[in-house]
Design a protein around this nucleic acid. Structure first.
Lengths: 123, 123
DNA sequence: TGTTACTACTGTGCCTCGCATAGTAGACAG
DNA sequence: CTGTCTACTATGCGAGGCACAGTAGTAACA
């Protein structure tokens, strides 16, 4: 019932993500890092390690990248590394940008709701 | 590695929750509702339905309550309902209050980190 | 030259959680 | 006595995070 239903034509979208939010953050964090600058998996792991509470292991990031790319949210390009195997550089497609925007909206709602909820809690 | 390790004696704690955060919000939302006032499962579902992005179904809330109670974070008391089966009223134990506080801390960190991350994103 | 270390990505499998679905049961209105 | 709220219980699935393991490229060092 309610908005949980995926309205047929758009597959996995924000509605489904709001379900996923509670297992998530990973997707939005990865998208945000890529939105700042085209980059590759190993680097994303390093970058997110600098953000408290957002650290993700490689075994989380790589599958996310694969999934997002399969969903058409990311474009890929490979380039030789000066110190290792070829890097797979990811950038946002227009759907990817749109998705990031939508996820940010959802995040704001949840975040705002939680803040409101916390206000009623004596500490 | 890092804080993900469960330091033997305290079982599932904040470290583990920071793993769980990404599937979570449910736990912190439920704890927060109970912190405001002693209440029961069905009512929690109703209350959270009023918060955008925090709506949880009964099949999510009840298992959460059971788990939190088993972990000693909630105390239970039953009371007859004027219009249905007996209600199971939950309140926070001192561990529960402590846990809620810790979860709020973690939430702030993640939330703040995401906000910082978003700042670097052109829109 | 072979060992170590860092870079960079791939693959497998487990465990937890959210949730859809279904069921039980009390109270009460028509 | 049927339907509709209220209130909780039980089952099972799918998705995702992550630990763990493996492969491979580059380079320093003995």
């Amino acid at each position: 019932m309610r908005g949980t239903v995926v309205t047929s034509e758009q597959g996995i979208t924000v509605g489904a993500w709001e379900t996923q939010l509670r297992k998530g953050v990973a997707e939005i964090a990865v998208l945000a890092v890529i939105a700042r600058e085209e980059t590759y998996g190993y680097r994303i792991v390093e970058v997110l390690r600098e953000f408290e509470g957002l650290a993700l292991s490689e075994s989380t990031v790589y599958p996310v990248l694969t999934r997002l790319a399969n969903d058409g949210l990311l474009a890929v390009r490979t380039e030789a590394s000066p110190a290792g195997p070829r890097r797979r550089y990811y950038s946002l497609t227009s759907s990817g940008q749109r998705r990031l925007y939508d996820l940010q909206e959802s995040w704001q709602k949840v975040s705002g709701s939680l803040a409101t909820l916390f206000k009623g809690v004596a500490r």
